[in-house]
Every structure is written in structure tokens, then in C-alpha cells.
């Protein structure tokens, strides 16, 4: 192990990079080993973990999923009822979505409680809000994909809400649906948004989030 590391380090000069990422002190007030209540500082890390879990289970679900009205339901039905461990993987993805919402909410509560959004971390707070919206976007677009009754009608209701926005509502709703009704085009764009656009957004803003945490350090009580 160390010889492989040395081989790579000699050629790629990894040490400074790893040092930057992992070699730093966690202040006592955020260290559960010193302050048990500091477990609340773990919420952010748990959010990251769940998002990784969602990506992993999501990629496996994609192997059997075809985004068209004729095939989507059949694919999910196959995953759920016939594929080995399919029901479990889909279950984890579905429950994981709930877990992500819960943990993001708790993480936000922690940041509010400890006033961590204050100067100089305003930007990271805003990036966090973008991440919150991204997670909600995942939830909304993912809900349509099984193409069962609940999926279809919940999405219809959701898009109708968008339609009620003044001035741009009609345009936005039509853009979401790809037409005047929830149908094949809606399914395809929700799918693409769910597996391409939002993951890209997630990665970019997560990177910014972590970069700023490392740059600014964990907030201290003032």
C-alpha cells in the first residue's frame, strides 16, 4: 500500500494535495470526541454520504430504466418485483431521498443554531440554499419517473402550480411539460434533468461548498 502510494507520490506529487484535503485540526467545539453535542456538526458530512448513496443506487437503477411511457413502468416493475435485490436498491434510493431531505434540513438547522452563516460565510450559506433547491429538484423530478398513477398525477398537480405563476407561468409550465400535457416529452426531460442537469449542478455546488469550508474553516462560537 505504502509502496503504491510512494510510486504515485514520486510521480504526481500528491502529498501537498492530500495534506490540503485531510491534514487539519477539527476545533474542539466541533469534535464529537471532545464535545458530544458536536454530533450536530456531522450532519453536513452525512448529507454528503447520502448524496453519494443516491448517486450509486441511481446509477444501478438506470441500468434497467427506459424513460418512455411504454417502458418506464415496466422497467420499474421489473426492478421492484423480479430483479435480484432490485426492490432493495429502489427502496434505498426512495428512502434515501427522504433521508436526504431530513439531513439537509437538520444541517440547515445546525447552521442557523450556531449562527454559522454569518460573516465571512454568507456566500457558503447561499451555496447551501442552491444545494437545498437542487435536492428538492431531485425529489420533484424523481417522483415522475416510475410512471405510476401517483407519479403522473402528483406531477400534473406540481406543474399546474407552476402554471399559476404570473406572467411566465404558462411558459414555464409548457417548458416543463414539453407541451400542453404531461406525457412522453415530460418524462424524458424530467429524466434528463434528474440524471444529468441536477447531478452536474450538485457536483459543482458541492465542490464550492467544501472548498469554502476548507478555506474558511469551521465556524467558531463568537
Amino acid at each position: 500500500m505504502s509502496r503504491i502510494y510512494k510510486f504515485l507520490d514520486d510521480r504526481l506529487n500528491l502529498s501537498p494535495l492530500l495534506k490540503e484535503i485531510a491534514d487539519h485540526q477539527v476545533p474542539d467545539h466541533a469534535n464529537p470526541l471532545k464535545t458530544p453535542t458536536a454530533l450536530i456538526y456531522c450532519f453536513g458530512g452525512i448529507c454528503l454520504f447520502i448524496l453519494l448513496l443516491q448517486i450509486l443506487t441511481g446509477v444501478f437503477l438506470m441500468l434497467y430504466y427506459v424513460p418512455s411511457p411504454d417502458n418506464a413502468y415496466a422497467g420499474v416493475n421489473y426492478i421492484q418485483n423480479e430483479l435480484a435485490f432490485g426492490g432493495l436498491v429502489r427502496g434505498i434510493h426512495r428512502v434515501g431521498a427522504s433521508a436526504a431531505v431530513v439531513m439537509v434540513f437538520l444541517h440547515m438547522m445546525r447552521v442557523v443554531l450556531t449562527g454559522s452563516y454569518k460573516n465571512p460565510r454568507e456566500l457558503n450559506w447561499i451555496v447551501g440554499i442552491v444545494l437545498l433547491l437542487t435536492v428538492m429538484g431531485f425529489c420533484f423530478t424523481g417522483y415522475l419517473l416510475p410512471w405510476d398513477q401517483k407519479a403522473y398525477w402528483a406531477t400534473t398537480v406540481g406543474v399546474n402550480m407552476v402554471e399559476s405563476i404570473p406572467l411566465v407561468g404558462n411558459f414555464l409550465a409548457a417548458a416543463l411539460r414539453g407541451g400542453s400535457e404531461v406525457g412522453m416529452l415530460t418524462l424524458v426531460r424530467f429524466y434528463v434533468v434528474h440524471v444529468m442537469f441536477l447531478p452536474a449542478l450538485l457536483v459543482i455546488f458541492l465542490a464550492a461548498h467544501f472548498f469554502m469550508v476548507r478555506r474558511q474553516g469551521i465556524s467558531r462560537p463568537l
Partner: peptide, 23 residues
Amino acid sequence: AVFAATVLAAYVWQVPLEEMADP
């Protein structure tokens, strides 16, 4: 711990799949 809880919930709660969408 969160992972264990998630897997347990996914295992115990059969994630629903209703009838196919009927526009």
C-alpha cells in the same frame, strides 16, 4: 448509522408502485 437505518427502512417498508399511469 444513517445508512443502516435507510437500508432497514427500505427492507421493511415495501416501496409502493401503484397502477401504471392513466392520463
